[in-house]
C-alpha cells in the first residue's frame, strides 16, 4: 500500500524529464527510452574500445542463435560499426539439432540477418559430426550443456573460418559471465576462471569476443522490447539439467537483494586474473594427435568427447 511519501506514478529519467523505462538499482539512476538505449550502446562501445575487441579492418562473425542475446548483439554492432568503417559483419548460426526448440530461433536468426542485409552462414551438427545433439544426448541428458558447449565451440570455429572472419563475437551477457565465474569457483577450476576467452585460443583459433559482457540480461530484454524486437522464444529444453540453472537462481536472488553483485564477481575475476597473469598460462601449446587442433593435453576435448559418444 502506498501512503504518504508515496512514490510518483511514473519516475522520470535522471537525465531529462521523460518517463523512465529502466531503473539501475546499483547507481539509482532512472533512464527514459532514448537515454537507456544510448547508455547501453555507449557501454558496449566502451567495452569494445577499451579492450580492443574490434579493430579497423576486422571481419566480425556474429554467433547468431536467434535468441535474445545474439539478436541484441547484432542490433547493437550494426548500429555502432558504421562509425568504424572498414569493419565487416557476418552472421553464423549453429543448428545443434534440438527438436521443438531450434526451429523457431533459426527462423528468427534468418529474419534478423536478412533485415540487416548480412551474409548468413549456417553450420549444423548433422553436417559436421554426423548427428543431431538430440541423438548424441540419448541417455546422458544431464551432461547436455557441456557436450553441446564443446561441439558448438568447434562448429562456431568452422563457421567463422568458412566466412573468413578475424573475430567471433558471442552474445554472452553480464549474467552469463557472472554465472561462469561463480561456477568455476564452485568447481575449484582456477585455470578456467582466469583463462579469458580471447587468450585460450593462444593465437591458433579466431579470437572470441563478448561485447555484451557488462550488459545484464534484463537490460538486453528491455533494449529489445524498446526496439519492438522482443520475441517470445522458448528456452532450451536441456537447460533444466544444468548446474548453471541453480547458480542463475542464486545469483538472481543475490543481485535483487544486493544490486551490483554480478559486477562485483566480474571485478573479482579481473583481480585474480591480474595476479595470475603469466603464472598459470605457461603450458606449451600442443596439438591434438587426432585432429591436430591446438590443445593442452594429448587429445583435445572435442576428440575425447567424440570417442566417448562414438561419433
Amino acid at each position: 500500500m502506498v501512503h504518504e511519501n508515496s512514490p510518483v506514478k511514473t519516475p522520470s529519467c535522471s537525465l531529462c524529464n521523460e518517463p523512465a523505462v529502466y531503473h539501475d538499482k546499483k547507481t539509482g539512476r532512472h533512464f527514459c527510452r532514448d537515454h537507456f538505449i544510448a547508455d547501453v550502446e555507449g557501454r558496449v562501445a566502451d567495452t569494445i574500445r577499451s579492450r580492443n575487441l574490434i579493430v579497423p579492418g576486422d571481419h566480425v562473425a556474429i554467433a547468431l542463435s536467434g535468441g535474445k542475446d545474439s539478436t541484441a548483439l547484432l542490433m547493437i554492432l550494426a548500429r555502432l560499426l558504421p562509425s568504424w568503417d572498414t569493419v565487416r559483419l557476418t552472421a553464423v548460426t549453429i543448428d545443434e539439432g534440438i527438436a521443438g526448440y531450434r526451429e523457431d530461433t533459426i527462423h528468427s536468426a534468418d529474419q534478423m540477418a536478412a533485415k540487416y542485409r548480412l551474409c548468413h552462414t549456417c553450420v549444423s551438427f548433422l553436417e559436421l559430426f554426423g548427428g543431431t545433439l538430440d541423438a548424441f544426448l540419448k541417455g546422458c541428458e544431464p551432461e547436455a550443456c557441456s557436450v553441446c558447449g564443446i561441439l558448438r565451440r568447434k562448429a562456431l570455429n568452422v563457421g567463422a573460418e568458412r566466412v573468413g572472419a578475424t573475430r567471433l563475437a558471442t552474445g554472452h551477457n553480464l549474467d552469463d559471465e557472472a554465472q561462469s565465474v561463480f561456477m568455476n569457483v564452485l568447481r575449484g577450476d582456477l585455470p578456467r576462471l582466469v583463462r579469458d576467452s580471447g587468450s585460450d585460443s593462444k593465437g591458433m583459433f579466431i579470437p572470441r569476443i563478448k561485447p555484451l559482457m557488462f550488459i545484464s540480461e534484463k537490460e538486453i530484454a528491455v533494449y529489445l522490447m524498446l526496439h519492438g524486437a522482443w520475441a517470445d522464444l522458448p528456452e532450451c529444453p536441456y537447460a533444466v539439467h544444468a548446474l548453471r540453472r541453480e547458480v542463475r537462481g542464486m545469483l538472481a536472488t543475490l543481485e535483487s537483494k544486493h544490486p551490483g553483485t554480478m559486477l562485483h564477481l566480474m571485478e573479482s575475476k579481473a583481480k585474480i586474473e591480474a595476479h595470475c597473469s603469466g603464472v598459470l598460462d605457461t603450458e606449451p601449446v600442443r596439438h591434438c594427435r587426432e585432429c591436430n587442433d591446438p590443445c593442452s593435453g594429448e587429445t583435445c576435448q572435442l576428440c575425447q568427447l567424440k570417442g566417448r559418444l562414438g561419433i
Binding site: P7, K9, T10, P11, V21, H23, A252
Partner: peptide, 16 residues
C-alpha cells in the same frame, strides 16, 4: 527475471 509493462508501456519497478 521479468520486465513489466503498464498499459502497454515499459515501467520501472518503483512505478505505481
Amino acid at each position: 527475471a521479468v520486465i513489466v509493462a503498464r498499459n502497454g508501456t515499459l515501467v520501472t519497478e518503483d512505478s505505481v
